[in-house]
């Protein structure tokens, strides 16, 4: 007969065994539509952009209704981050970093608005509204004309004024910069 001590050890081991997982037992495979619902990022080459489009004029209406309260009437003088102007200030004692003066990729604007803005109701704008308000912010920065607009094809082609203003750190980006 086994001693109580040996029995206890055996029980303990069995208990541990029953929690001992094997690889296949973790998680489940998501459906393609589940992934699509969460896969919100947009890359500089345009990968991830949804169908749709919007104009500067449409964007002004979206902006006035959803954004101006925090970012000011024309992307300036709001209670939150300034979104326009500042070009030519980056090497001065008082650099002003805005979408127009600092951001290297227009795709980042779409990505950021889609994931984070308007602040109090993220992800509440449609794809068309997001294209439109992105176009309007680029217009406020002199990057798109008043009659301009954006869609999946044109957004990645927008050349931002500060596109070449960044120095990627070699230690972390060597492979990527070499591939460019």
């Amino acid at each position: 007969m086994r001693s109580p001590r040996a029995l206890a050890v055996g029980v303990l081991a069995a208990g541990m065994m029953s929690h001992q997982p094997h690889a296949q037992s973790f998680g489940r495979t998501p459906s393609a539509s589940e992934i699509a619902g969460w896969d919100i990022d947009v890359r500089p080459d345009g990968a991830g952009l949804p169908a749709g489009g919007g104009t500067v004029a449409q964007g002004r209406a979206v902006y006035d209704e959803n954004c101006a309260a925090c970012h000011g009437p024309e992307g300036r003088d709001g209670i939150r981050d300034r979104l326009a102007g500042g070009q030519g200030t980056l090497a001065s004692g008082q650099p002003i970093k805005t979408v127009g003066s600092y951001w290297p990729y227009a795709t980042t604007l779409f990505d950021y608005i889609r994931r984070a803005m308007p602040y109090q109701a993220p992800a509440s704008l449609s794809a068309d509204e997001t294209y439109a308000v992105s176009a309007y912010i680029l217009y406020l920065n002199g990057i798109l004309p008043a009659e301009g607009g954006l869609d999946r094809a044109s957004l990645p082609r927008v050349r931002m004024p500060n596109r070449d203003g960044f120095l990627p750190e070699r230690e972390f980006t060597a492979g990527w910069t070499a591939a460019r």
Partner: peptide, 15 residues
């Protein structure tokens, strides 16, 4: 390749 989110372009980059 990097996705170039706002935080690695507009925010956490050092002038």
């Amino acid at each position: 390749q990097p996705f170039m989110t706002r935080w690695e372009t507009a925010r956490y980059t050092q002038l």
